[in-house]
């Protein structure tokens, strides 16, 4: 990453922590909740969410849920438990193998062919979402999101799966900023250092699958999204054209994942268009 961009993306960690913990306290309690629940994968994003939530609400008001599948790497569960250990927070392990396998046993038979790795991965992400939302009702706790700005922009997540949540404290932080804040808050070293992975199949890593590094993505996204430079301008600054256009096209193609379903307009006041209220209406 170029030094001037790196400087711009370097956080004031205590300031950001105070805004994000304030966000969690305020947005959770003013809608009548006291607790939060979130998936803890062993990765850095959910670890950061766990640290922020614990600092914001205290360990009695957070609940971590580990949801391994039979192919999940052993180190994922171990790392998630290190986070639980470091924060001394309550947690539950819910293995999603049985419901996911039962689903594909039936659907593969009906369709007559085996599901792709992508479909299986999406199904796992959505199984975890279903589990978290059920526990949300069981525990009277709001579901926290763990998607960062880089993956939300790239659309590197499952719609209505890991992208679903009630509140997301880290969705405006690029991946490199997630790393900085996680280090500042004391996320365990093994979580900070390992290669990011959705862990949907063996040896999967995000960067291998995306075809570029998170640092490359952050650097280009920051200039395009935040500084509003055109893709041409970014290319003229010496970045590979294929990389720049590839990233920009990914963001455009995945816009649908970041929006609520669109509604065919008929009336004078259509939800999402001209029926405008904040979600914090009345709070």
């Amino acid at each position: 990453m170029r030094p001037e961009i790196e400087a711009k993306l370097s956080l004031n960690p205590s300031l950001v922590t105070s805004v994000l913990t304030g966000f969690l306290r305020d947005e959770v309690t003013k809608v009548g909740f006291q607790k939060v629940v979130f998936g803890l994968s062993g990765g850095i994003d959910s670890a950061l969410t766990a640290f922020l939530a614990t600092e914001a609400l205290g360990r009695d008001r957070v609940h971590a849920v580990l949801m391994p599948y039979r192919t999940s790497s052993r180190s994922s569960v171990e790392d998630a438990l290190k986070v639980v250990e470091a924060l001394q927070i309550p947690h539950t392990v819910i293995d999603i193998t049985a419901p996911v396998d039962a689903y594909f046993a039936q659907v593969d038979r009906i369709l007559g062919y085996e599901a792709s790795a992508l479909r299986r991965g999406n199904r796992m992400a959505r199984e975890r979402m279903v589990t978290l939302y059920d526990l949300s009702a069981a525990m009277n706790a709001l579901v926290l999101g763990t998607s960062n700005k880089t993956e939300l922009l790239l659309g590197y997540g499952t719609q209505f799966g890991d992208m679903a949540s009630a509140l997301n404290p880290i969705g405006d932080l690029y991946k490199c900023q997630v790393r900085q804040l996680a280090a500042h808050l004391g996320v365990p070293q093994s979580v900070l250092e390992k290669a990011p992975s959705a862990d949907l199949w063996a040896d999967q890593t995000d960067e291998k699958e995306l075809g570029f590094t998170y640092d490359e993505a952050d650097e280009i996204l920051y200039q395009w999204v935040d500084l509003r430079m055109s893709p041409d301008e970014i290319v003229s600054r010496g970045y590979p054209e294929r990389l720049v256009r590839g990233i920009v096209e990914r963001v455009r193609r995945n816009q649908y994942k970041r929006r609520m379903p669109i509604i065919a307009k008929l009336s004078g006041r259509t939800i999402g268009l001209d029926f405008r209220y904040l979600r914090d209406w009345g709070t």
């Binding site: 711009k8 370097s10 956080l11 950001v16 932080l173």
Partner: peptide
Amino acid sequence: PWRNTMAASDF
């Protein structure tokens, strides 16, 4: 609203 407040050097 607090915005553009990420950078260490910039409030």
